[in-house]
């Protein structure tokens, strides 16, 4: 449904991808771990490899959890599907788009 307005009401999104150049925003959703109170938001180049994303952005963030184990087995999800990203794949290659949410769950 459209807004009711006096005159044209049409404004660009203030979060649109072009405002981030070659980068995009990527969300990480920590599942089954209440230590992380909310999902995280990162700015990352589309061409960043998964390895760099993991080591450079995600690990330093997740290490705040004293029980964090970088080597634990994890299930990743994107767009409702399980994904198995390789370290050398770029975010773009994995299919991560601007403001996507990547789910992360540690297997028991």
């Amino acid at each position: 449904m459209a807004v009711n307005s006096i005159g044209t009401y049409d404004f660009p999104s203030r979060s649109r991808q072009e405002l981030y150049g070659d980068d995009q925003l990527v969300h990480v959703w920590f599942q089954e771990n209440m230590w992380f109170c909310a999902s995280a938001c990162f700015r990352a180049p589309k061409a960043m490899t998964w390895g760099d994303f993991w080591n450079g952005l995600l690990v330093p963030y997740a290490e705040e959890d004293p029980d964090f184990d970088p080597g634990a087995r994890r299930v990743w999800t994107l767009h409702g599907e399980v994904i198995e990203p390789r370290d050398d794949q770029t975010l773009e290659e994995i299919g991560v788009e601007h403001k996507d949410v990547i789910g992360m769950r540690v297997l028991a």
Partner: peptide, 8 residues
Amino acid sequence: HFVRGLPQ
């Protein structure tokens, strides 16, 4: 515990 980054 302080978060080292920004939330969604």
